[in-house]
Design a protein around this nucleic acid. Structure first.
Lengths: 272, 272
DNA sequence: AAGTGGTCTAGACCACCTG
DNA sequence: AGGTGGTCTAGACCACTTT
């Protein structure tokens, strides 16, 4: 019935029981979270340091259960908008503390850059179908001799060459021609656009390196310059590997950021 | 009453209502999670690829509500033990996929290394009380002229110098003498040991650098060697800065790992 | 059609913080 | 002492997957 009260399109539905329910909508808690952001935070109705209404008041205001309000508040907390304390309430944090897009989010370099307000383009693009070597196949956890598409390119920012990226996608994951057709600068974006692949996360190793002659010439930067090296395996929900990506990125053009949280998994289970 | 059924120590309590409840125990969902790990996963009762019992069966088995079972399963999922699919159930993943300790967890370098099965020690330790310069004070978001403790030292692994670390802690956060007394290799561990500080997270910037003359001599490594640079502000739940830490770390001794997750905050709110 | 996880509700007691 | 968030229950309906 609370859903009935909220539904804008269900005004002329008839039955008293059961109430009409939505289909394929976003999570209620996501909608509540966005409404809270709009109504209390972004417009300054509650200044930084001030308190949001209590959970009970938010329940009444939006006509949802407390667990839904709490999910919304949890999301605001994880996004860095508020801090929550037992017995005290939810305090709005200074806007400057709001979390920027971090490395811990699985998104393409293009998306990563655009979130930081920067535009990148792709040059020196090479796409080819190959038969994987033993080493490459082992890294991708597929049989030796499996065919795959390799994509190599230079990323530029503001005309400056800032990174060299190499991606492998086995053909058993995605048909080579499809990958080639849909590629628009980012392999990951192609994979993410296929919901049936269920791309879920990637495991990424970070390292510092200095440029060798080949990379230096590709990037137009002196041999010996420092670069950040990211070696990454992208996986499905089932843990199947769909992509091996290597990136050599010149520092100082982007901010590589991580929010390190205390004991996320082992001692704190998110209740709601 | 389900709690009553679970309590081992409450056998001789009298009242029918209300049931005796535990105090200061761990989260129920954490206990359930650990029991599931023990009973189904670690002993191989359910092989990788196999299914855990359904949520309803787990509720019955452990005499807890579904939301508690779901919190336990969510934790197992985030730890990489299982994958969960609507209509299908919870599938145990291969052990090799289990998540290692990542950079996204706030823990000291000592803890980080020991989790990876490595021991580090501290040499060339310098601790001093200073009056912060304008730049330093600005970074720590305190008034210029504030006093602070600076801790500088070299980290060694297996006799090899692997990192140079500099920490600042304003005296208004922790009394200098207390920090000096309790310091045992890690500034962060001292801060984490004070629950009243409510240390919660840190924002960490990553960069690649090459060693300058001073750092090279401290680390006994050639000038121009690549190092990973971490610049980190540790904060309380309220967003107050308690520590500024800079670390220059030689690669190849440790694995700097991040699990990048898809859209953690914006579209997926953890329900339970 | 049956079963599973996904979402959501109403209500309860507890621990903590603030008057 | 009262109010707040923290934890937990029982039960409901929905969407997805498998039979």
């Amino acid at each position: 019935m609370s859903d009935f009260a909220r539904s804008k399109e269900g005004a002329d539905s008839a039955a008293v029981l059961p109430p009409p329910r939505r289909r394929n909508r976003r999570l209620l808690s996501d909608e509540i979270r966005d409404e809270i952001v709009q109504e209390f935070i972004l417009n300054g109705a509650v200044a930084p340091g001030g308190r949001l209404p209590t959970e009970a008041e938010l329940c009444a205001r939006y006509q949802v259960s407390r667990i839904t309000v709490r999910a919304a508040l949890r999301s605001l907390q994880q996004s860095g908008f508020i801090t929550v304390r037992q017995g005290r309430g939810s305090t709005v944090l200074p806007r400057a503390e709001t979390i920027p897009s971090g490395l811990d989010q699985l998104c393409s370099f293009e998306t990563f850059a655009s979130v930081q307000g920067q535009e990148v383009d792709t040059v020196d693009l090479e796409i080819e179908e190959v038969v994987l070597s033993e080493k490459e196949a082992a890294r991708l956890a597929v049989a030796a001799g499996t065919r795959a598409v390799v994509v190599r390119r230079v990323k530029r920012y503001d005309g400056q060459r800032v990174g060299w990226i190499v991606d492998y996608v086995p053909e058993e994951v995605l048909a080579p021609q499809q990958l080639i057709d849909e590629f628009d600068g980012s392999v990951l974006d192609v994979l993410l656009a296929h919901p049936e692949l269920e791309v879920d996360y990637s495991d990424c190793d970070l390292d510092a390196m200095t440029l060798n002659a080949e990379l230096a010439s590709r990037l137009g930067t002196p041999v010996g310059s420092p670069v950040l090296y990211l070696d990454e395996l992208t996986r499905t929900r089932q843990g199947r590997i769909v992509n091996w990506s290597q990136a050599w990125l010149l520092p100082r053009y982007f901010r590589f950021f991580i929010r390190r949280r205390r004991q996320f998994d082992l001692n704190t289970v998110n209740y709601s």
